[in-house]
Design a protein around this nucleic acid. Structure first.
Length: 559
RNA sequence: GCGCCUGUAGCUCAGCGGAUAGAGCGUCUGCCUCCGGAGCAGAAGGUCGGGGGUUCGAGUCCCUCCAGGCGCACCA
């Protein structure tokens, strides 16, 4: 029996008690689906609900009395072994072992589909993340969004949404100019401009640009007049940087569907059209020679300049056009993941959304994630190119590998800032919980290999009532939760819940493994109990694999 | 000054109003003649930052104070 089914049974019992006048409740006060949850204490049964506590006041009945009435009505339901009233009025429900154990077969037969749900079905979602400027390699902060963002995309897809992963290249404006000037200066052996970029990668990109140009039969850009040379370094340098960012993300297991170039918005007239639309809607005004968007009408703390007094578009103009573009491409929800250093955008972007007549928080959702801090010897280390303390995506992967990197970044809530210890990163990789989860998976695979050797096969028999050990009830309960965890991770946009779930599942599996043998001893015959346990082993294997996949982490068969 | 996020075990972090607050790592004690010891069992370790409030019930919600992080441009 699944929690959903149990929930319906409870609702029905409640409804019938209201219908025959046992409880004096308005029909609309009766919840359509009763919330059931896994109790922390095993003694409290397989499932528990607090409906009686919540409805007691409305019904004018003491909670325990209300609970007792429900317990009586549930008592004879097939699959339910016992219903107890506990504490202030909880209902603790214990299922028949067979009813619970049936799940093992369901999971194995569902395969990769187990965990998929329809909580986000029908939604067309644009998920924008990373979007680091193409003026340098992706550093540790961006890697967090790569790991979390891609995992969120996977979780949303598993919940029925159609997701487009999008990366916004800020390839327009002053930062790119600084990047181009830095490349040119470096190529000519000059000092980096005061406001420019000076890392080692600048030299590498500069050299590559020269080589690219020469290979294409063009003049060595160093010999061109300044303006022309800078343009060559800009276009070829940015192209190079795009390539590096794309390939390092790909190596990290993150592939975007769309790389959107800010420059295209300015070149195509999209900015002008978006601004005109807000003007027609009466959201703009002129002041001090500039054109403003009255974002304060929608809760922003100050109005924003869209067209500067020198006639150039301000940065937000691109964002306005970009948002409109996403909506015109048919996305119901535009989700943007931003670092905490950009949370100042929230107010103005939500106002932009509202100014177009959309609903902030629905059509546009901004997810703010806290920063990743570097720590050495317990002391915070400021990332500095000069001091050589910049940690890039490649550095992180080189140090711990893709699986450990993705897992450690995706397993905690983005609301908390993460401290990464550089020394710990380089040495003690074994402390990463990813190995605990992966080990459980490879253990299930080892059992499968041995089962094949002993000719234990699932198909030959399955009797769920034989899954009657304490650790089996716990394990089955955990397996039942998986689809809800995925749905919850999608709804709350919190993929880290999947990782935490897997750690719990791995622990339950290891405990079961140490209590119950899947295979017969050498002198024993193969019996139904062995085959039945193999079903359970394989169900765990499937869920671990499905969960790890949602995190973009591999599920190794051996390690 | 204003706004957002955070404060839970020695460390890193879970815990979308429920029962005795958890995990990994670290420390200590046990457990491999049979399916993987990267594991299991047990122990030690907590004023859930402080104080008020709401509630049958608060780590969770509200107020306030303290501490830390990050923001408050006609920069991008």
């Amino acid at each position: 029996m699944t929690p959903d089914e149990l929930s319906h049974v409870l609702s029905a019992a409640l409804a019938s008690a209201v219908a025959d006048g046992t409880f004096a409740l308005d029909a609309d006060a009766v919840p359509t689906s009763v919330h059931v949850e896994r109790p922390k204490q095993r003694e409290h049964g397989d499932w528990a609900t607090n409906v009686a506590l919540q409805l007691a006041k409305k019904a004018g009945v003491p909670p325990r009395e209300l609970a007792q009435e429900l317990a009586t009505r549930l008592g004879s339901t097939p699959g339910i072994k016992a219903v107890d009233v506990a504490g202030p009025g909880f209902l603790n429900i214990t299922l028949e072992a067979g009813a619970a154990g049936e799940l093992a077969r369901t999971i194995v037969e569902s395969g990769a589909a187990y965990g998929r749900n329809d909580s986000e079905a029908g939604k067309k979602v644009n998920l924008e993340f990373v979007s680091a400027n193409p003026t340098g390699p992706i550093h540790i902060g961006g890697v967090r969004w790569a790991a979390v963002g891609d995992s969120l995309a996977r979780v949303l897809e598993a919940s029925g949404a159609e997701v487009t992963r999008e990366y916004y290249f800020n390839d327009h404006g002053a930062q790119i100019d600084r990047f181009a000037r830095s490349l040119l200066a470096r190529a000519r052996g000059q000092e980096a401009p005061e406001d420019g970029y000076g890392g080692q990668y600048i030299a590498e990109i500069a050299d590559a640009v020269i080589a690219d140009a020469v290979a294409a039969g063009d003049t060595d850009p160093r010999d061109l007049p300044d303006a022309e040379a800078q343009e060559v370094f800009r276009s070829r340098g940015v192209e190079r940087m795009f390539g590096e960012i794309k390939s390092s993300l790909h190596d990290f297991g993150v592939d975007f569907d769309v790389f959107f170039h800010e420059d295209s918005l300015h070149g195509s007239g999209a900015v002008d059209r978006a601004v005109a639309r807000l003007q027609d809607a009466g959201r703009m005004f002129e002041a001090d020679g500039a054109t403003w968007l009255r974002t304060t009408d929608f809760g922003d703390d100050k109005d924003r300049v869209v067209i500067k007094s020198d006639g150039d578009a301000a940065y937000i103009a691109g964002d306005i056009a970009y948002y409109l573009d996403k909506r015109e491409r048919g996305f119901d929800e535009a989700i943007i993941m931003l670092g905490a250093d950009h949370h100042g955008y929230v107010g103005r972007m939500m106002a932009v959304c509202a100014a177009f007549g959309d609903t902030p928080g629905v059509n546009l959702q901004l997810l703010i994630g806290q920063m990743v801090n570097l720590v050495k010897d317990g002391q915070p280390v400021r990332m500095s190119k000069r001091a050589g303390t910049v940690v890039t995506l490649e550095d992180l992967v080189d140090a711990v590998g893709v699986d450990a990197a993705r897992y450690s970044l995706a397993r905690s809530s983005v609301d908390t800032s993460i401290d990464l210890d550089l020394d710990l990163l380089a040495s003690a990789t074994n402390e990463n919980p990813v190995y605990y989860v992966q080990y459980a998976h490879s253990r299930t695979c080892a059992v499968d290999r041995n089962a094949a050797d002993r000719s234990v096969a699932r198909g030959d028999g399955f009797d769920p009532a034989l899954l009657d050990h304490e650790t089996e009830a716990v394990l089955l309960g955990r397996l039942t939760e998986f689809p809800r965890i995925v749905a919850q991770a999608a709804e709350l946009r919190e993929p880290h819940r999947v990782a935490r779930y897997l750690e719990g599942l791995a622990a339950d599996y290891h405990k079961w493994y140490s209590e119950r043998r899947v295979l017969p001893y050498p002198d024993e015959e193969v019996e139904t109990v062995h085959r039945t346990r193999l079903w359970l082993n394989d169900a765990v294997r499937q869920v671990l694999a499905n969960g790890l996949d949602l995190l973009g982490v591999s599920a190794p068969e051996r390690m």
